[in-house]
Amino acid sequence: MDKPELIIDGKRLDGRMPDQLRPIKITSNPIRNAAGSAYIEWGNNKILAAIYGPREALPKHTGNLNRAVVKCRYTMAPFSSIEEHGRPGMNRRAIEISKVTKEVFENVILLDLFPGNEISIFVEVLQSDGGTRAAGITCAAVALAASGIPMRDMPYAVSAGKVGETIILDMNKIEDNYSDADMPVAINPRTKEVTLLQMDGALSRSQVTTALTMIEKAGETITKIQREALLRPYEKVSSKYEASI
């Protein structure tokens, strides 16, 4: 298929400006059985994240007597793509994403408090439209905070890419398919530490700077959405018990 025009009159196919995020909505604790969970709708991405633990690390040899270990599993539902039916479970891509996601959270969780334990992070992509690893990390951070597991910062993630010579933020699937570069990044907003950084394509030195600046600025918006999702449940009385009086 020919490469479509991705930017027309300065606007992207879905009407966004180059530095504009897709709409993001986050709900905390949709999964009752989990220690903490979150659901994110990021553009057309729909992703669930759930936390189990801290719990005894099993099998035992996977544990560490000095600190908790983090386990992460990122998977995509076989019906998540607009195209063909996928295979359920892990492929090489999912294994890599699980690993880099795990490392983001190893950086911020106070692991020393729970020796011998594991903290499991499950990220399930129910519908995908580009940028699922970043959305998954943003969602998992909310799930972790909702579980009460102590973290020294609340990571967010978003990607930037390049179409022609224009740097654009938060690419959707079609942009991703035809882009000239893609760079997902996770950042601890308080300290500005980068905890995930991947890139492929071609970016000049100044384009890297432009992309990172865009990502940092978007972080302010994403952090605010994460914060609202976490604090919303504490803001009013639920009505569901009134009926039982």
Binding site: P150, R152, R190, Q226, R227
Partner: peptide
Amino acid sequence: IPGEMLSDKPLRLDHTVVENGKTC
């Protein structure tokens, strides 16, 4: 929320960390 700065001085407070002299 996690990561939010509570004080730009080090405090001895449960459920916080002190980094670069600041309490979060």
